[in-house]
């Protein structure tokens, strides 16, 4: 039996933008009237990867890395300048109706809901243009109204909703036609923590119930960590890493963090030889140590007077991401690698 076709295939996908630029000031503004200066920016460079149906994949990378450009090419909004993209067997840039009926794009900073009308009006429009049967529509809407707790807001003009309420309605509008592939571009931007959690939970539930493929970009690491089994790190338009979040963490910060609560009051020369001390205060101590030396470190820490609450873990995600997103540091991800 042959393997099922991947939901998404990228083969050398590239996008080059031609952007005009000028120096600040009146003189250059006037000069730009007569002679515009253009630079070519390679936003995405020869990206190649596949995403299987039902996968939850997160794009990570610093600002301007090419994540959103890639997402927009996959959604059919941008025409690639090189290479090939295929989503559910379609070439996205052709924007065939059959393709558009099977995908959805949610953008945290853009809306499809009519600003001055209740969200229900846009839902109804989408029901018709996406050709959703009335019964299916009613069932899906009821399910999502319950999951997202939006009964009280769908009849109010969208402009009167809070950001969180609006984004919930945006999600409903995007999912009413039951897309098989859902592209999420910064879906939780500007939301409070509770709302972020609700959104993540909802997207995970949608993936679980319907087997939809989820492709997400987010600056909130927690979104990606909580939702995505697979991470694609994109930097300067190139794929730098493809694997699980655990593998990513260990690649960037291979040391394990070993910590313990103990009665510590003096220098710990024995432990200092095992690794780097990252925390030492009265009552607790933590070291980053090489994985091979974890047993030694554990033994040494447990030998401390009053040792309790011993923990061995990866470096905190935010530290990893700070390192990952910092342009000044080498990422240590020279080649795309599976995790």
């Amino acid at each position: 039996m042959s393997a099922p076709e991947p939901a998404i295939v990228l083969d050398g996908l590239s996008k080059r933008f031609r952007v005009n630029q000028r120096d600040p000031g009146l003189r250059s503004a006037i000069a730009a009237l007569f002679r515009r200066e253009y630079v070519e920016v390679d936003a995405v460079r020869e990206l190649s990867f596949c995403i299987d149906a039902g996968e939850r994949v997160g794009f990570l990378g610093p600002n301007g890395a090419g994540k959103t450009t890639t997402l927009k090419m996959l959604a059919g909004l941008l025409h690639p300048t090189g290479g090939r993209a295929q989503v559910l067997g379609h070439v996205p840039a052709r924007r065939e109706p059959e393709f558009l009926r099977r995908v959805a794009l949610v953008m945290g900073q853009k809306r499809q809901l009519s600003w001055d009308l209740p969200a229900l009006d846009t839902f109804e429009l989408n029901r018709v243009v996406y050709e959703v049967e009335r019964g299916t529509y009613d069932a899906r809407l009821a399910e999502m109204r319950e999951l997202l707790d939006i009964d009280a807001v769908v009849r109010k003009p969208v402009r009167t909703l809070s950001l969180g309420e609006r984004m919930k309605c945006e999600l409903v509008a995007a999912l009413l036609h039951g897309p098989e592939v859902l592209f999420l571009d910064e879906p939780t931007i500007g939301m409070d923590v509770a709302m972020q959690l609700a959104m993540r939970e909802f997207v995970r539930e949608y993936n679980r119930r319907h087997g939809a493929t989820i492709v997400l970009t987010s600056h909130y690491m927690e979104d990606v960590a909580a939702l995505c089994d697979r991470i694609l790190v994109i930097d300067e338009g190139r794929l730098r890493f493809d694997g699980s979040i655990d593998a990513l963490v260990r690649r960037i910060r291979p040391l394990r963090r070993v910590s313990v609560r103990a009665a510590v009051s003096e220098a710990l020369d024995v432990l200092d030889a095992l690794g780097e001390r990252v925390e030492a205060q009265v009552g607790s101590v933590a070291y980053d140590v090489h994985p091979d030396r974890v047993p030694e470190a554990v033994a040494a820490l447990l030998a401390l007077p009053g040792a309790r609450d011993l923990r061995v873990r990866d470096a905190p995600l935010e530290e990893v991401m700070r390192e990952l997103f910092s342009r000044n540091e080498r990422l240590g991800l020279d080649e795309e690698e599976g995790g």
Binding site: L105, Q112, V129
Partner: peptide, 12 residues
């Protein structure tokens, strides 16, 4: 402004 994105995603 890119608002066109939302309309382009609809099959109409």
């Amino acid at each position: 402004t890119g608002e066109l994105n939302a309309l382009l995603m609809r099959p109409v």
